[in-house]
Design a protein around this nucleic acid. Structure first.
Lengths: 220, 220
DNA sequence: ACCTGAACACCGTTCAAGT
DNA sequence: ACCTGAACACCGTTCAAGT
C-alpha cells in the first residue's frame, strides 16, 4: 500500500512493467524479487516500499497483463462463428503471454479487467435476446471456458504417442474386462492437438448456447 | 531413475504417498524437499537417490493423484444428464485434492491415467454413435473442459461485490461510449458462483455435443 | 552399495541504521 | 521522508566422505 518516489523515480507502474517483462522473457520460476531489484538497479528492499509482498506484486502484474489485452474486431459471419472467433482471439492473446498465464489461476479480482472482451461478449449475448443476468452468465461461460482451456494447454504438448511403444507404455495396460470401451478405443488415443481440441470444444459450447437461447423463445 | 532400499525401507511409493499427504494438508507452497525428508525421518539428500529432482517427484505425485480418482457410477437419466453427471463427479474429485490441482497444469502425461472416467466417457460417446476417433475427441472435450474449469475455480472466490463500493471500485469506470453493452450490464456483474457457472457451462457443452452427433445422422 | 554432512548459491522478508 | 546493509530463516542441489 505505501507509495513514494523521491530519488529513484521508482513508480509502482514501472516496477510492474519491468517485472512483467522479466517474467515474459524468463518465466515465472526464474523470477525473483532480487533479480527484479537488480534489473531496476535498486536495493532489493526498496521494492517493498511499494508492494507489501511478492504475492501482491504478482497480483498487480497479472491484473495489468489482462488489462492490456486488446482483441481484434469480430469478423462477419453467423452468430456461432463470431462467438467462436471471440474465444479464439482471447485465447491467442492469453497464450502470447503464456509465462504470465500461471498467475491467472491465482490472481485476485481479474475478472473485470478485460473490458473489450466483455463488450464483445455481452453484445453477442444481447443478440440472442438474453436478459441482463443471463447475458452476463453466458459471457462468463465463454470467458472462463477459454481461460481454463488455455491454462491446461501445455499439458497437451507432452502427451506420449511419439516415443517408441509410447502410448501403451505411458497409459499402461488397459483391462478389457473392466474397461471395455477404453480398450476398444485405445488406438485412437494419439497425441492431442490443443488448438483443434479447443476449437472443437468451443464450437460445441457455442452451439449449445445458441440453441438454448433460441429454442426457449420458441418459434411463433 | 535410481532405485534402492536397504536400511531405510524408503520406496518411491512411500515417498510419493507422504509427499502427497503433506501437500494435501499444507499446500503446495508450504511443501519442500527438506520438510518431506523430515517427515520421512531421513536425510534430505536420500530422497534424491529415488527422484532426480523436486520436479520429477511432483510429477509422480500428480500422476498418482489422478490415477487414484474413482468415480461413482453414473445415475439413470437422459444422455445429457449422464454426461453432465460425469463431468461433475470428475470435478468434485479434482476439487477434493485442490492442493494438488496446481500440479495438473504442468504435469506431463497425465491424460491416460483416469481410466474410469475414460471408460464412462467413451461409453457415452458410443451411445451417440460416434466413430472411434470422434468418440475420443468428444471425451477429451469433456475431460479437459472439466480440468480447465476446475483449475480456474478459486479465481471466483475472491471476486469483489462484497467490499463496500466493491464492484465499481475494482472494475473501475466503464466508459459507456466505448463499452455500451458493458455499461448496460454492469449491475449484473455480481460475485461468481463457481459451481453454478460450471454446471451451466457443462450443460451447454453437453447439449451442443448431443445435438451435433444426433443431427449429423439425420432423421430417416 | 547405500546413505549422510557440509557446503554452495540462492530465496523472501525483517529491522535497525543511515542520509 | 526515503532508502539501504546486514541478518534471519529458509530453499534445491552437488559432492566428497563415511559405513
Amino acid at each position: 500500500m505505501p507509495t513514494a518516489t523521491r530519488t529513484t523515480g521508482l513508480t509502482p507502474e514501472r516496477i510492474v512493467g519491468v517485472a512483467r517483462g522479466l517474467i515474459s522473457e524468463h518465466g515465472l520460476d526464474w523470477f525473483s524479487m532480487r533479480k527484479l531489484a537488480a534489473e531496476l538497479e535498486v536495493n532489493p528492499m526498496t521494492v517493498y516500499l511499494r508492494f507489501e509482498s511478492k504475492d501482491e506484486l504478482l497480483d498487480a502484474v497479472a491484473r495489468q497483463a489482462l488489462q492490456d489485452v486488446r482483441l481484434p474486431d469480430l469478423p462477419d459471419g453467423t452468430w456461432e462463428e463470431r462467438a467462436t472467433a471471440l474465444c479464439t482471439a482471447l485465447r491467442n492473446h492469453l497464450l502470447a503471454d503464456r509465462n504470465l498465464l500461471g498467475l491467472f489461476a491465482t490472481a485476485d479480482r481479474l475478472s473485470g479487467a478485460v473490458a473489450q472482451s466483455v463488450e464483445q461478449g455481452l453484445s453477442l449475448m444481447e443478440e440472442l435476446g438474453l436478459e441482463t443476468d443471463e447475458a452476463v452468465q453466458g459471457f462468463r461461460a465463454l470467458f472462463w471456458h477459454t481461460v481454463g482451456f488455455t491454462l491446461v494447454h501445455h499439458s497437451f504438448d507432452s502427451f506420449p504417442a511419439d516415443t517408441p511403444g509410447g502410448l501403451q507404455a505411458s497409459i499402461g495396460a488397459v483391462d478389457a474386462a473392466t474397461h471395455p470401451a477404453f480398450a476398444r478405443h485405445l488406438p485412437s488415443f494419439t497425441s492431442v492437438d490443443g488448438d483443434a481440441l479447443f476449437d472443437q470444444t468451443t464450437r460445441l459450447l457455442v452451439a449449445g448456447m445458441h440453441r438454448a437461447a433460441t429454442s426457449s423463445q420458441g418459434a411463433p
